[in-house]
Design a protein around this nucleic acid. Structure first.
Lengths: 165, 165
DNA sequence: ATTACAATTGATATAATATAACATCACCAG
DNA sequence: CTGGTGATGTTATATTATATCAATTGTAAT
């Protein structure tokens, strides 16, 4: 790898994992899941998913719109929001509630609701299954007599990589 | 109490607690806290807080704007958002991230970040300190090397009162 | 092949949420 | 009384999201 790639690379912590592999694996899983579920990962949906997976940062809907326009030059807000709705329904991305933004799901097809650690410095979002947290939450729901349909568990702060800089 | 109050009352579960007392206590705590902290709970901020405390539902900013206009007839979006910013800073209300809305904090001055149980049926929001959840979260942050500055822990579903209907 | 149906996308418009920027006002410390 | 700070007034605009209806596409039944 050209050492200058480090400088020009859009991903702050990119050197720490093989991002191309990361993306292609996630796309592969998404494609297979959609086949199994008999739902359509259309070109637009696939492109939006790719754009989201391109970084580990939360991406805004209108950012996606701008970025998809070169590919779909008649894209409109609804184009994006419809794709996002689909991807969320299929558990392929997460909506980051505290940012009104979206991030790829690295564990598509498995657990859909995770702890999201949002770094205010590098803007990357780390997903963590956080099983103890989920167990404690379930217990709390039972105690409260609450039937949970969905949950959002998000923290903003500084990630380990930025803290060590 | 006039039995008809039950019908006309804006709060679905109102009979289950003395809401006037609930509001006046929360206002009292807020007033005292602001004195102690030497910050100003101005008339506008007080009115916005009252409007929010009026129900246990999450309230939208523009709903508040509509409701405050009779009292402050030159109120604008900024009027509301500034009051909301203040009230959030002081821990007197919560922002409900998954609804882009706001709800009163019943435990002002104590713990600021709680589990919010949002009922999709009656729209009320229950705050729970959920200590086990918080402990598990802290442990998860340590494991991840993440320094959390703020967190949002929200669940949508059906509350115990609505489930029993 | 033809038709009918559902799902997807195109296209236009508008609603809902939130902030920027600068002027004015009210208060209090010096 | 004056200068500074925080709060509010005011106008404008940015950002996020949805509604609506038309056109297209794929496909299943006839």
């Amino acid at each position: 790898m050209n050492p200058l790639d480090e400088v020009s690379h859009p991903h702050p912590h990119a050197l720490e994992h093989d991002h191309e592999k990361c993306v292609s694996e996630a796309l592969g899983i998404a494609e297979r899941l959609c086949v199994v579920r008999d739902v359509k990962l259309t070109p637009i949906r696939h492109q939006v998913l790719e754009l989201i997976l391109d970084s580990h940062k939360a991406v805004k809907a209108y950012e996606l719109l701008d970025r998809i326009k070169p590919l779909q030059n008649n894209a409109q807000p609804a184009t994006i929001y419809r794709a996002l709705d689909f991807l969320i329904e299929q558990g392929l991305i997460h909506r980051v509630e505290s940012l009104n933004a979206f991030v790829g799901c690295s564990c598509s097809g498995h657990q859909h609701e995770l702890l999201l650690l949002i770094c205010k410095h590098c803007n990357e979002v780390e997903e963590r299954p956080a099983p103890q947290v989920m167990t404690a939450l379930s217990q709390e729901f039972s105690q409260a007599g609450f039937v949970a349909h969905s949950k959002a568990i998000e923290a903003q702060g500084i990630c380990v990589k930025c803290r060590e800089l």
